[in-house]
């Protein structure tokens, strides 16, 4: 299981714009490198990142070969109601990781 770090404010005011930061451990093999014998190293990257807020998708990203190792993705959303934010990363070789955090909206 990949290790992920999520930074979401625990509390927010209704209508407030909140910053969400995510960091996940992943080696990110671009697929363009070759071994010393000339054999291509198979691509192994995270291809999609998705965030749902109480079941509604609020952020989605498709990632490609140029993405850094251990990708750090930060974005903003509006705090509408108390609930759960679910983060999902999927990638090559059946990679899948899910994290969730709760937020209290007053």
């Amino acid at each position: 299981m990949a290790r992920a770090l999520i930074n979401v404010p625990a509390r927010a005011k209704r209508g407030e714009v909140i910053a969400i930061k995510t960091l996940i451990s992943h080696v990110m093999e671009s697929g363009f490198r070759h071994t010393s014998d000339g054999v291509r190293v198979a691509r192994d990257i995270i291809t999609t990142f998705d965030c749902t807020y109480n079941g509604v998708e609020v952020f989605h990203a498709d990632l490609y070969s140029a993405i850094a190792a251990n990708p750090f993705i930060t974005f903003h959303t509006v705090a509408t109601e108390s609930g759960t934010l679910v983060f999902k990363w999927t990638g090559d070789n059946g990679f899948s990781a899910t994290e969730s955090v709760t937020i209290q909206v007053e």
Binding site: R3, L5, I6, N7, K21, L23, S25, F72, T74
Partner: peptide, 17 residues
Amino acid sequence: AMQDDDTANPGTLWVLD
């Protein structure tokens, strides 16, 4: 800023491991 914020510092992944 990346170093200062533990949730943005990728070194934290190693610290947790």
